[in-house]
Design a protein around this nucleic acid. Structure first.
Lengths: 119, 119
DNA sequence: ATATATATATAAGTTTTTTATATATCAAAC
DNA sequence: GTTTGATATATAAAAAACTTATATATATAT
C-alpha cells in the first residue's frame, strides 16, 4: 500500500532520469515524477526535493539541456539529453544491470557454506 | 577492471550484510568484505569505512549481536542476527527484489510513447 | 470561496558514504 | 632482523545524497 521512502532508490535516481529522457526525448520535472509512479504502479515515487537537485546537477555536469515553454499560461521547463548525456544514460543502465547480477550472486542462497574454498 | 565506488551500492549495504549473516550464521567484518568480493567476482567491494558504521548501526538497532573471540592471538568480533534481525533480513531481500522488478519497468524500453494513456 | 491537481524550486537538516588515518598481529621475503 | 603484505577492527573528518518542510503560482472543479 505504501511505497514511500525506498532506501534502494539511493544511487539510482540519476540512472532513472537519464533513461527516461533517453527514451522520451524531452520531459519536464513533474512529468518525470508522474511517469515513474505510473510505470512502477506506485512502487517507486520520486519526490521533488530529490528530483530537482538531480536535474540541476545533471545539467551542470553537461548531461542535460533545458528549454522553457509557456503552456497554458504556466512556464514549463523541458529537459533533454546532450550527446554526452545520451552516452551516460546507456552506460548507467548497463552498470545497473551488472550491479543487479552481482547482487543476485549475494542474495541467492549458496549450496554449502563456502563457494570454492574447501572443494 | 575497476569496480570501486559503485553508486548503486548505496542503500543496499544493510541488505547485503543482513542476508550474508542470515545465511552464514555468524561472520566477522573482514570476512564479510572478502565474501562479498569473492561472490561478486570483485564487482562489489565493501570498504571498511562503510561496513563498520553499518554493523554498529545494525547492532544499535537490535538486529545484530556480537561476540568477541581470540583467534591466533588476535581479537575477532563475530556478528550474528537477533530474531528481529532475521525477520528484517528476509524483509529486506524481498523488498530489494520488488524494487528490481519496478526498476525493470523503468529501464526496459517502452513500445510507444505512452503506456496506457492514449490507447 | 475552497480544495485539488498541476508546476518549479530552495533551504535546513539528517543520514550515508567516502577518504584518510590509527592501531596491531602474523607470515613470508629479503 | 626488518620490511612488506595480508589479516583484523575501528574512528574522524569531509563530502555527497536524500528527506522534509516550505514558498510560490495557475487552472479547474466543487
Amino acid at each position: 500500500m505504501e511505497a514511500s521512502s525506498n532506501e534502494f532508490l539511493r544511487g539510482t535516481l540519476k540512472t532513472i532520469v537519464l533513461k527516461l529522457l533517453a527514451e522520451q526525448g524531452r520531459m519536464y520535472g513533474y512529468e518525470i515524477t508522474q511517469s515513474v509512479k505510473e510505470r512502477t504502479s506506485g512502487e517507486i515515487t520520486l519526490t521533488f526535493g530529490a528530483l530537482y537537485p538531480v536535474l540541476h546537477k545533471l545539467e551542470q555536469e553537461g548531461f542535460l539541456m533545458t528549454e522553457s515553454e509557456e503552456v497554458d499560461g504556466r512556464l514549463r521547463k523541458y529537459y533533454s539529453l546532450t550527446p554526452s548525456g545520451n552516452a551516460t544514460a546507456v552506460q548507467k543502465v548497463s552498470d545497473f544491470e551488472r550491479f543487479v547480477e552481482a547482487m543476485q550472486n549475494l542474495l541467492r542462497p549458496q549450496n554449502g557454506e563456502m563457494s570454492l574454498a574447501k572443494l
